[in-house]
Design a protein around this nucleic acid. Structure first.
Lengths: 337, 337
DNA sequence: CGTAGGTGCTGAACCGGATAAGTACCGAGA
DNA sequence: TCTCGGTACTTATCCGGTTCAGCACCTACG
């Protein structure tokens, strides 16, 4: 029960391997009658091209790589990656491209994986996520010559094609909205400080607060976990100059912060307004439902995949600024009491 | 700047391609001195094996497939899959196996993907998840002859190697605990009724309740979303014979149910005890923190990957009953008021 | 001293396709 | 009638490895 090859088809059709190859690939060089006969036989005996054989002739691997460098636990915590992956998938599967996924421990291992995949002809390109400030991966993949799309701001992407959203605008919209409600003391519970998008949001937050003449606008950095989100919230709410509004960098921390506020007998939104970055069912389910910055994460992934496929096709891929996160107001924001 | 091949190494070392192949693969047939020289050259010029060429000689694809048949949105909602994937990854990456992932729309597309991957020699095996009752995929992959491990109860796995946990025992432990606390009216908010593990939990729930002589133990089926979880809870809490405890099939629904209870001015745990299936940071973050059935999902994935790699190696892989979910009590369960 | 056996290597075939080069055949135009 | 040109193929080569058969050469043993 060996897998049928074009040699089998050739034998049955009474033609040469070459003719079968032309016929199956829609190339000129065979008559329509012969082509139809060959296709019929191929279909009948269940022939499938062997990608290995094709790859040997310099063909595409028809797969793109994604190495995720996050502790396994965090992956489960944040819906972000699954949503991103489903968006990437949507684009890839339409072109019959597969996604080669590997979770790695650190950036060194990540680069090792990319080097191997690229060196072994396993992937045609890759998507780089979670850019750091001065990320060493950028020059390294540039040197490899592998088509790569970066999910992140162009300022950190070097010569690689970036796909990003304007986080600064989202920060501005949020702060301006809170100020319009009457808030003067706004805090930000941020994610990992070494991530470049954290730095961008931090700077935008500081700039907007300063521009609006707000007093103290503290920023607390965390590791995105509910535990640290709760701790940061507790610290902020215990300070003498208690903020009347907190903007969290993800939904998990926002929910944790909400619980802390309620634990401290503060009413949300009367005593404290809460805004979360990234919507999730969770945000709609807690009481009060959270005002959030909504992003279409699957679209984000889809756009990155599109750009990557274009690059792989040899098309000059332009940077893409995706839609900025939109503020969706719910019950967790109101004028301060 | 072509990629170096063994021919390049052979030329530099002044030996034949065959000798290089033996040297690089640790096979006998070359002297240690020659082997060392060849390895040094290979290392120096940065040679990497071309998997395509290896695969052409019948070698492994060194990848396993996972096609997930869930709407993109649900993937983001449930941490389960990311945790599962990181567990699978942990095992695979240790053996330099990659995971080929594709999100598909329905079971037919899923089977199409498996057929293609297997037919094209892209994967050496696959992991089947989300088994249904009388799942048509089981006989289909059995016929394909592809090594497959099933995540689910043996009763639904046919001749495929199953990896599962004893959900019935977990259900029993939970109900017995609630009864010991003094509860007599316990309800279950379940997931999709067509999934085989839902059926197994349903049956166990019914059996245990009947065995303990409990009155009415209603089961409500949902689609795992917070919305349906909230609706199911509202319905249960509005009935004349209001349950004093509810066991939810995932954490999202449990949190939604908790909010509904609080919305209805019921105190948790005094008026209503809540138990969630699967722990997550979310469960620890809400007030009160939820009593949960804890599973080590990454371990679950790792075991499945282990079994699959064994199958691929031609080793007879035995079914594996994984550790049953453990009840972790927190503030959401107490004797009824 | 002849030879059996092992070591260390070479040369060539092979995997399953893609593709360039070559060839037989047919019809049309000069 | 001969040539030209296109069609419809065939043949051969290549991709980058693996693997088998074969062949020197050295050693040990009777």
């Amino acid at each position: 029960m060996r897998r049928p090859t074009i040699a089998d088809i050739a034998r049955q059709a009474g033609v040469s391997k070459g003719a079968v190859s032309y016929a199956l690939n829609g190339q000129p060089g065979v008559s329509e009658a012969t082509r139809a006969r060959i296709l019929a036989i191929a279909n009948e005996i269940g022939w499938r091209p062997n990608i290995a054989a094709r790859a040997l002739n310099g063909a595409r691997a028809h797969a793109v790589g994604l190495a995720l460098c996050r502790p396994a636990r965090f992956l489960g915590v944040e819906p972000f990656f699954m949503e991103l992956i489903s968006g990437i998938e949507a684009e890839l599967s339409a072109r019959s491209y597969a996604l080669l996924l590997q979770v790695v421990g650190d950036h060194e291992a990540e680069m090792g994986v990319y080097r191997r995949w690229w060196g072994e002809g396993r992937v045609d390109g890759a998507i780089l996520v979670d850019l750091h400030l001065d990320d060493p991966r950028v020059p390294q993949v540039e040197e490899m010559g592998m088509p790569v799309v970066v999910l992140g701001h162009p300022s950190a992407a070097g010569s690689l094609v970036p796909v990003w959203a304007d986080d600064s605008a989202a920060v501005r919209e949020t702060v301006e909205y809170l100020v319009a409600l009457g808030h003067r003391r706004i805090a930000r519970v941020a994610g990992l400080p070494r991530l470049s998008h954290t730095a961008i949001r931090d700077r935008a937050f500081g700039d907007v607060c300063a521009g609006l003449g707000l007093d103290a606008c503290p920023i607390v950095h965390t590791d995105y976990t509910g535990e640290e989100g709760a701790r940061a919230t507790r610290r902020l709410l215990s300070s003498p100059e208690r903020p009347t509004a907190i903007v969290f960098d993800n939904d998990i921390m926002a929910v944790a912060g909400l619980s802390v506020a309620q634990e401290m007998r503060l009413d949300v939104p009367a005593d404290l307004s809460v805004v979360a970055w990234d919507d999730s069912p969770l945000c709609q389910v807690v009481r009060p439902p959270l005002t959030v910055l909504t992003r279409d994460i699957p679209a984000y992934g889809a756009h990155a995949a599109q750009r990557l496929l274009a690059l792989i096709d040899g098309v000059e891929a332009s940077p893409l600024e995706d839609e900025a996160p939109r503020l969706t107001t719910r019950g967790s924001t109101a004028p301060p009491a």
